[in-house]
Write a protein that binds this DNA or RNA. Sequence first.
RNA 1: GCUCGUGUGGUGUAGUUCGGUCCAUCAUGCCGCCCUUUCGAGGCGGCGACCCGGGUUCAAAUCCCGGCACGAGCACCA
Length: 481
Amino acid sequence: MRREGLPELKNAEKGKVVLRFAPNPNGPLTIGHSRGIVINAKFAEEYEGKIILRFDDTDTKVKPPLLEAYKWIEEDYEWITGKKPDVVIRASDRMPIYLKYAEQMISEGFGFVCRCSSEEFKKLRESGEGSPYRERSIQENLDDWNKMISGEMDEGGAVVRVKTSLDIPNPALRDWPALRIQHKVHPCVGDKYKVWPLLDFQSAIEDHKQGVTHIIRGKDLMDSTRKQKLLYEHFGWKYPETLYWGRVKLFGFGSFSTSGMRNSISLDEYSGWDDIRLPTIRSFRRRGFNPNSLNDFWTDLGLTQKDISISMQTIESFNIKKIDSTTPRRSFVRNPVELELNNLENDSMILKIANHPEGSVEGHREWEISNQNRIICIERIDLKPNIRLKDFASIVIKDDKAIIESTKMIDKRPIVHWLTKNNSREAILYAPDKEEIIIYKGLIEKDDILEDTVYQLERVGFVKIEKIPNDGPVEMVWLHN
RNA sequence: GCUCGUGUGGUGUAGUUCGGUCCAUCAUGCCGCCCUUUCGAGGCGGCGACCCGGGUUCAAAUCCCGGCACGAGCACCA
């Protein structure tokens, strides 16, 4: 039995599945995030469920939210899935809820305020001891809690912990921290809150409030699941089904973290979040990737807990399959050499060049060749005595003359792409190469090109034309071979 | 160190729940051929893997035991 696509969801009822995708809005989405979007969207489609886009923006210090990123992420999401999420929420909007549950936790004695420093607690945890603050009275805890939320207590002065058994073998789970003090201004809600929940707490509460039935997350969050289950037991809630995926590394891209990219961009090492060297969704979109190929790619990878390394070539091959038949061909001559056509059969003629060799893109371009218009350009690298100008004629090159031998295919000489000088204009192609951008200068067809359109430049590769200015060169960005 | 997870061809992936139909699937990659007026696409063929060692069994990728390797968590990040 061979399985196609994704595995089945446990305890999933059609129409009742609720999923969520929860990024940190400290930057736009990367190609790595797109896995979460694609997989969740796929499951939502299969089970007729809904997806919540939740912004986990409860850290103002280490990964401060970027105000613009909320909008960007919604755009990125929509680009990938072709639709909007069913629900969009921001954790920062829902602070009263989290604080209320935190207080309930303390009042009912399964949470406590711990005044240990992180170093102190680390030592205690290692030796299997509990915090000296864990056995204080509920009233003492509540008093400290009020100092925390009023702003009386300094950052680092205390955290709220979820009380667990100290006998749990996994040290990561013991008395785990749920909320901490952060006085820094939040770009959305200002300085209203002095205490912010940590991911494990905020996410646990919110998943319950939203009725999330299935969580799909990275396996680095396995201990999060375990911590949250402990919290759910305290509250008497039922924890969602949970699935995990492993780490994905993209060959060809170094390790990019959102905060790292943010820093590099602020240092002008990159032109912006859509810099063609960056593995962001915005960059992929800019370069002309088809979002459906991302869907096919991640679905093909499926959902495994293995840590994997993927070649960009694999993603690209999915994209080629998606776009090849609908992408018009054009001619781009790098390092052009001018030649004068000789031996024309007619004084004037119009060449019809198909937009696509298989005809899957309708139409053609018309190139005029005449006695007055007989200068052509080919790439310097193609400068050989006997070549064939694609779709036109076999020629012999002598000095700067291209002497037509025949318009018929008379032998198997190399076929090269070319242009008439009259129908050409300057163009620049920007291609990412690791940390560099390689610039190719050349000539492109003057007519029949459109901005924001993906073309396959014959014998070069797929590109997107970004700008066709009135003056100056056409600007193009590299997609792939 | 403690805890958790993962190990199928170059890269991914199916099969592992209920052992036989698996001399192991599919994709990508690489090689060759065909087709094609692109170094693209398409077609055909080929290459190449069950981490290791024991055990159970008529039979093990699949079950058991023991190693090994890799990754993650043990943050007042997400």
